[in-house]
């Protein structure tokens, strides 16, 4: 049977783009708005744009944060999705899900914020980055970031080295947008399908 990938639908995600990307890979991703929608899912995509605390509050209203934490299959948090999976964020003093024991910080320094555009990845590790060459360019749009951590499976340089992707058990997070990152992005999504 074909696997069922569902996208967490909490009105704070770039759902259309993620669905389109999976369609180009020949897979129709479903949507999950309530905890019971997760029952027949094999994998989850946890997207996110916007404000951390506002997004977290929407998730909590429907107990979706608990449902994601309890999910047994692979989960891929994208951008804000990844940040919500961390311990906490400086953005609105948000308390996260604690799936990654990291604190999300705001970029500050003598450079432009948001970090916006195509930047290169290095230190690629693990199955999510199979067949993705070192120094591949992917698309970032964010003002907050996860500092370099031991759970990083990809790093990026902007002011300092930061965590571009991380994993712990079945949970994965990417700070960039694979669904908007051309060829390397599509490879990463294919790798997630193949996990």
């Amino acid at each position: 049977m074909k696997q069922q990938i569902k996208i967490i639908d909490y009105k704070a995600g770039n759902i259309a783009s993620v669905r389109h990307a999976f369609r180009r890979l020949g897979l129709e991703a479903g949507l999950a708005a309530f905890p019971e929608d997760l029952e027949d899912a094999d994998k989850l995509i946890f997207p996110g744009v916007g404000h951390a605390r506002a997004a977290m509050n929407i998730l909590k209203e429907k107990d979706m944060d608990q449902a994601i934490k309890a999910f047994k299959g692979p989960v891929l948090g994208i951008c804000l999705g990844m940040q919500l999976m961390a311990d906490s964020s400086e953005e609105g003093d948000m308390q996260g899900m604690g799936l990654f024991p990291d604190k999300i910080k705001r970029f500050s320094g003598d450079f432009k914020v948001p970090h916006m555009g195509w930047n290169s990845l290095y230190g690629l590790e693990g199955p999510l980055f199979a067949n993705v060459p070192e120094a591949s360019h992917v698309y970032f749009v964010h003002s907050y970031y996860m500092p370099k951590s031991s759970r990083a499976i990809a790093l990026c340089q902007y002011g300092e080295a930061f965590t571009a992707a991380c994993s712990k058990d079945q949970f994965f997070g990417v700070q960039f947008h694979p669904e908007k990152s051309g060829k390397p992005g599509m490879q990463i999504l294919q790798n997630f399908i193949d996990l």
Binding site: H20, H177, K180, M186
Partner: peptide, 11 residues
């Protein structure tokens, strides 16, 4: 907008 989103994988 919808058709472009379906056709491209860049922002």
């Amino acid at each position: 907008v919808e058709d472009v989103a379906a056709a491209v994988s860049i922002p």
